[in-house]
Design a binder for these strands. Structure first.
Lengths: 215, 215, 215, 215
DNA sequence: GATGAATGAGTGTTCATTCAT
DNA sequence: GATGAATGAACACTCATTCAT
């Protein structure tokens, strides 16, 4: 009886994890597509291929689910950022790499942008309530500070650059272009997502940021 | 008879205009606060101090109302941009002024940011359906192009700068900081909206943008 | 002043009559198409090309308007029936003529059928409340009674025929065919409204009714 | 475990069926009383003793519910008609029996008449959209055709009688009397629903129909 | 762990009707 | 006589959520 039920317990756990994962993925897509207010629990269940009741079994309610989705999203980008290893690179290369990473990450994870928007629409209430999210407090700013310091000491970077300001600027340059892509396309009648346009944007952003940090 | 009825007709029209205006303002605030999906027609009516039915008298439905709000928002910023008269200024001053204007406008019209977010969440569908919005196609880009050209000919600006890229960058620098202010504050535990922090941001942005355009 | 205003008064009256007539016609069509519950005051105003408020000026409310429409409809068919002058015809011809008239009248006034349906759905409440309708108490039954009596005395008709029963039967034969035409067509997959089908129906009904009254 | 859950599953299904049945009955009464436009979903829920939301759980919307009610009504009368076994009777008796059945069925199922009216008001759109209704294509017409043929061969019936025409006539004679009973009573000031009046009507109808088919 | 049935409180929208001129 | 503006009550329909098993 012991081994058997043990196995079943493990299997059950695996099922449970898979279900939770399916729900989180489905919820992320739904929230990203429709926002918190527009998301439908029914559709999340359908997307996950699971019974709606199960969502409430694992997550208390819609708000809690949204919070879990946000936490997971932050967890993911933070992990990716950690892999960048900026400190092993030459300062200018490190900055360029960060610009590129940010651009590519937003491009490949468009849901992240709309989730961020939704989180901010609700004044980041869900993040403030999430210990985990606050604890994930990006080490990137510290890392970026070090890179800037290296560059300054090396003589290639200007001094007095606030790493947070720089981080926000790097993010903002990609974010606005991608997040408002539809509005901009509609108003200026120019497709901003062609491969060529995307390359031009990346070049432009590198020019702007490096033009600023380099002496 | 003529003058009298004329006056009353005018007054009636004024009432109608006032009602429509009240609805639009209320709707703008509600949509900005809760997004399209989270906005409540009841609350819009309440905010406007008018009967809910009247909203449907003047605007077809929620979507149409949202579109009207967006149109009005764009109309407003386009008007303000027009007043900048960048061409009368020295090129570097003009660029600085645009950066400042964008910053201040976003700061003073925080609803504009969330409306933009909502519009993009819905892939700018409401703008594409709005002839008016597309027709407002900002003359700012053209103006900015001329400024850049003046600067280049004058010898102070670098060449080859795409005015649209620059415009998006200027907007993005302010936008991300302000739009994600709550998230950033929550995660980095630093209040980004103190007068000091705001001044620092403005200085930083001018440095970044001018560092880029100036030779 | 007298002649002038006199003329205007007449003109006004004419306008008023025209407006009332337009409203009644519009209402008849709307009620016939959608029933009492499904009819929309807005659409009636639109159909009539008049302001909605005017309907309430002339008719108290929707129910009263419906009653007026019914009264008018009955008035009209009663007038047409009166013109038949059945008594001047040979009994068998008179009966045949009544069958034909009923058929053609229903065919040419399809709204009459649906109005009748609506009236009965509401248990003829609107007719009971209408003195006028009750006063129009068809002289047709009396006329029909005389025709039957002539025929009987003449020796061609059977005796003991209740004119009301006969009238109901004549009406019913046309009514069911036309009123349920859509249902019957859908279920039996046979178009009952082709000229040929219509002729066959008329022949059949004459056969049935005359087969009954003739000895 | 298996038997237990099996039983409960069945019970649940029975509950679900009971709920659906309750909704259909309630809807049939409500639609019959007020027509499609006048029927209220709230009242249907109340009549069924169930939550309004459940109606939408089982039936898509009001129109679909109406369609389901119509389907059920047709199903029911078709089943009853099938039980008549007209072919086992002597031709004249068969016809008389059909007249009686139609009369009694309409009398005992007054909702059927108003449902039919509503269906026709909407041009049988709900039937056309219902495959099931069309498939129920009454075998009665075929049966009636055989009866007529028997009678003709036997020498008691006239020839050349279209069974569809006859069916429509039989139905129409009962239908008009019962469906317009209120209007007729109001106008002719005669109660058509006393037992005596009802008997007279049945006699009259048999006379009319048999007078037609018999040689 | 998983699910079908059920629900109370909304949600956008519509309706007949009235006000004011 | 005629009308544009305004409204309260209701309407079909939806939503997040819970019950029972």
């Amino acid at each position: 009886m012991s081994k058997d039920t043990d196995t079943t317990a493990k299997e059950r756990q695996r099922d449970a994890d898979r279900s939770q994962g399916a729900i989180l993925s489905a919820a992320r897509d739904e929230f990203a597509e429709h926002g918190l207010g527009g998301a439908r629990m029914d559709r999340i269940a359908e997307r996950a291929g699971l019974n709606k009741r199960l969502i409430y079994y694992y997550f208390e309610d819609k708000e809690t689910l949204f919070q879990a989705v946000l936490e997971q999203a932050y967890l993911h980008i933070r992990e990716e950022e950690r892999k960048l290893n900026l400190l092993e690179l030459e300062p200018a290369t490190a900055i360029r790499r960060l610009v590129e990473f940010t651009w590519v990450y937003y491009l490949e994870n468009p849901q992240f942008l709309t989730l961020l928007n939704s989180a901010n629409l609700h004044k980041a209430r869900h993040l403030q309530e999430s210990q985990r999210a606050r604890e994930m407090n990006s080490p990137l700013i510290a890392m970026l500070g070090e890179v800037l310091e290296h560059g300054r000491r090396e003589g290639s970077f200007r001094g007095g650059v606030d790493p947070l300001q720089l981080y926000v600027s790097i993010a903002g340059l990609s974010y606005f272009y991608l997040s408002n892509n539809h509005t901009l396309s509609a108003i200026f009648g120019r497709d901003l997502m062609t491969p060529k346009a995307r390359n031009e944007r990346l070049t432009h952003m590198c020019d702007v940021i490096l033009g600023y940090v380099l002496k």
